[in-house]
Simulated assay, not measured.
Amino acid sequence: MPFETFSLTIENYVAQVVFNRPERANALNQTAWQEMKAIFEELDENEDVRIIILRGNGRHFCAGIDLELLMQVAQSAQKCEGRKREKLRRQVLDLQAPINAIEQCSKPVVAAIHGGCIGGGVDIVSACDMRYCTHDAFFTIKEIDMGMVADLGTLQRLPKIIPPGIAREMAYTGRNVSGQEAERIGLTNRSFVDVDTMLAEVMKIAQVIATKSPLSIRGTKAILNHSRDHSVADGLEYMATWNAAMLLSDDLTEAFQAKMQKRDAVFR
Rank of each mutant, 00 (worst) to 15 (best):
F6D: 02
F6K: 08
S7K: 09
S7R: 15
S7T: 14
V17Y: 05
V18S: 05
V18N: 05
F19K: 01
E23R: 04
R24I: 08
A25P: 00
N26V: 07
A27M: 10
A32V: 14
Q34I: 02
E35H: 05
M36V: 01
A38H: 14
I39H: 08
F40Q: 05
L43C: 01
E45G: 00
N46P: 08
N46S: 08
E47G: 01
I51H: 01
I51P: 05
I53W: 06
G56P: 02
G56M: 08
C62F: 05
L67K: 09
L67Y: 08
L70G: 15
L70M: 14
M71L: 11
Q72L: 11
A74W: 02
S76Y: 08
K79S: 03
C80A: 09
G82E: 09
R85W: 03
R85A: 11
K87Q: 10
K87V: 06
R89L: 06
L93M: 03
I99K: 14
N100K: 12
A101Y: 11
E103R: 11
A112P: 02
I113D: 07
H114K: 07
G115V: 01
V122G: 04
I124V: 14
I124Q: 06
I124R: 04
C128K: 02
C128D: 05
M130C: 00
R131F: 01
C133S: 15
H135F: 13
